[in-house]
C-alpha cells in the first residue's frame, strides 16, 4: 500500500474514530516496506536481505557472470570510467560485495589514496576480503561492515562513493542517499549502478521472461537456491525507475544529477555531485 493511497482513505474518513483507524493504517504502511513483491515490516527487511546474501555469497561471482553473461563487468568498467578517480583519492565502495569495483579503484588511487569496501553483510565482506587478498590487493584497502543508511564516517570524507547493485536492497533509500551525501566531500561524486527499467517494450517483455522464469532455475542449478534469485528478480521490479531515482538524488541535495542507460536500460548508472 502506498502513502498516497493512505491519504485518500483519510479524505473519506468522517468520524473521529474513522480518522484514528485511518491514521493507524498510515502508520502501519509507514512501518512496512517491500521485500521483492511481499510487504514486510521495515525492521525485518535488513535481516531478510542478509539471509539472501548469506545464502548466495559463495557463488555470487559465478552467478553474476552466468546471469549477465559477463556484461556486469562492462557495466562496472563504465562506472569506473565515470568516476574520475585518480591517485590520492578516497573512495567508498558501498555494498561492495565481492570487491570488483574496489579492486580496480585500489590500483587507480595508489598508495596515497584509500579505498573502503563496505557492506552490511558480513558473509559478502569476507568473500570480498579473501578474494582481494588472494589477488594481492592490500595496503590501501580497508573493510567495514556498515549500514548504508547510517554510514559510520565523518562528514566530507570521500571523493567518490559507488554503490553497485546494492541500493535496491536498502530499506530506506532516501536515508541512505542522504547519508552518502553527508560523507561525500564537496566536489565529490556519487555513482549508483543499479538495475532499472528497460527503454524498449519488447526488451522489457523478454527481460521479464528471462528474470522470472530462467533466473530462479539458474539459481537452483548453480547455487541450489531459487528463492534468492526469485527475490532478485522481484526486487529489481520494485526498484525506482531512472527518473524517480534521479529525483530522489536531487531531493537529498545532489547536483548535476544525470543517468546513463546501459544495455537498453536494463541497468542505469546515476551520477550526482556534491558542491
Amino acid at each position: 500500500m502506498s502513502n498516497s493511497q493512505v491519504s485518500d482513505s483519510n479524505d473519506t474518513a468522517v468520524t473521529e474514530g474513522a480518522e484514528v483507524v485511518a491514521g493507524d493504517k498510515q502508520s502501519d504502511a509507514e512501518a512496512q516496506t517491500h521485500f521483492g513483491f511481499k510487504q514486510v515490516e521495515k525492521n525485518q527487511k535488513a535481516s531478510m536481505v542478509a539471509e539472501v546474501f548469506h545464502s548466495v555469497a559463495a557463488k555470487y561471482d559465478v552467478m553474476n557472470d552466468l546471469m549477465s553473461m559477463g556484461i556486469h563487468r562492462l557495466w562496472k568498467r563504465f562506472t569506473i570510467d565515470c568516476s574520475g578517480a585518480r591517485a590520492g583519492h578516497k573512495v567508498l565502495d558501498l555494498a561492495g560485495g565481492t570487491g570488483d569495483l574496489a579492486a580496480k579503484f585500489s590500483k587507480i588511487v595508489g598508495e596515497n589514496g584509500q579505498v573502503i569496501l563496505a557492506d552490511i553483510n558480513n558473509a559478502m565482506l569476507n568473500v570480498g576480503r579473501d578474494k582481494l587478498r588472494n589477488l594481492g590487493i592490500v595496503g590501501n584497502i580497508d573493510y567495514v561492515q556498515a549500514n548504508a543508511e547510517m554510514l559510520p564516517f565523518p562528514d566530507n570524507t570521500f571523493d567518490i562513493i559507488t554503490i553497485a547493485f546494492g541500493l535496491r536492497n536498502v530499506t530506506d533509500k532516501d536515508k541512505a542517499l542522504a547519508s552518502m551525501y553527508r560523507v561525500l566531500k564537496p566536489g565529490g561524486r556519487l555513482l549508483v549502478l543499479e538495475f532499472s527499467k528497460p527503454e524498449n517494450e519488447l526488451l522489457s517483455k523478454a527481460y521479464d521472461v528471462y528474470s522470472f522464469h530462467l533466473l530462479p532455475k539458474m539459481g537452483q542449478l548453480v547455487a541450489n537456491d531459487s528463492e534468492s534469485y526469485q527475490y532478485l528478480a522481484e526486487s529489481i521490479r520494485m526498484h525506482p525507475d531512472q527518473e524517480t531515482l534521479k529525483g530522489m538524488m536531487d531531493a537529498v541535495g545532489f547536483e548535476q544529477t544525470s543517468y546513463y542507460n546501459l544495455t537498453g536500460g536494463i541497468v542505469a548508472l546515476h551520477r550526482g555531485f556534491k558542491f
Binding site: 568498467r77 570510467d81 580496480k104 595508489g110
Partner: peptide, 20 residues
C-alpha cells in the same frame, strides 16, 4: 592509461575536462 604495478585502461569523456 592509469599506471600502478599494472596499467588500467579507462575511457574518458571528450565533453569533460580531463585531470590526467
Amino acid at each position: 592509461f592509469s599506471f600502478s604495478d599494472r596499467v588500467d585502461v579507462l575511457i574518458a569523456n571528450r565533453d569533460e575536462e580531463s585531470q590526467a
